[in-house]
């Protein structure tokens, strides 16, 4: 079926066990975007976590960093078939952010500046599996790559790592986010090729 989207070039046929099925390694970091790039200054940036009582837990840029920034080296797998291995990131663990947020709900909707959303199980954001990332490859995260801060959930396809993240809302059911409501998988495990529902 014809489809007017640009492909990504990379090295095919690599038998690297770090590359999930259906993926191709790239060196250059592709930019994917479904809308205009929000320009958010760090002095205006805020992260809000809303629990089921409607209580908002808020962190400014400085308050986020005060929780402790860590180095992360992970492989990234995009549903559009590219993988970028060994990416160096810096960010704050969601374990630290959610440490004092009590919730009985099992799911989370991530919200972004610009209106993007994506759904995740809460357990996939905990136990050292997810971060609010503010740097990549030794530089502050560029706006086109989701700066000043994006969600980083590297064990799932990269559309789950919401660019320009501004909030997380606890939710009782696994409601679909933006791409999920248009046919993309509710979970998105690259090793199981969970691209579509």
């Amino acid at each position: 079926m014809p489809f007017a989207t640009r492909g990504f070039s990379g090295r095919r046929g690599q038998a690297d066990t770090r590359v999930p099925p259906g993926q191709t390694m790239v060196e250059k970091w592709p930019v994917l975007s479904a809308g205009p790039t929000p320009q958010v200054e760090t002095r205006d940036w805020e992260l809000t976590v809303q629990d089921e009582t409607g209580t908002d837990h808020r962190w400014s840029w400085d308050e986020l960093h005060a929780l402790g920034v860590e180095d992360i080296t992970v492989d990234i797998h995009c549903v559009t078939h590219w993988s970028k291995l060994g990416m160096a990131w810096r960010g704050v663990s969601l374990d630290k952010i959610l440490a004092n947020v009590r919730s009985e709900h099992r799911y989370v909707m991530a919200h972004s500046y610009g209106g993007y959303t994506t759904n995740l199980p809460l357990e996939d954001l905990l136990d050292g599996k997810a971060w609010i990332a503010t740097e990549a490859e030794g530089e502050p995260l560029d706006p086109e790559h989701g700066g000043p801060a994006r969600l980083l959930v590297p064990h799932l396809y990269f559309w789950k790592s919401a660019k320009w993240v501004r909030g997380l809302t606890m939710m009782p059911d696994n409601d679909p986010g933006f791409w999920e409501q248009y046919g993309y998988h509710l979970y998105g495990d690259p090793w199981k090729e969970q691209r579509y529902r």
Partner: peptide, 12 residues
């Protein structure tokens, strides 16, 4: 405005 470099086509 159509954004083609995404997991789908999005027209705004």
């Amino acid at each position: 405005m159509v954004y083609p470099d995404a997991p789908g086509l999005v027209a705004r």
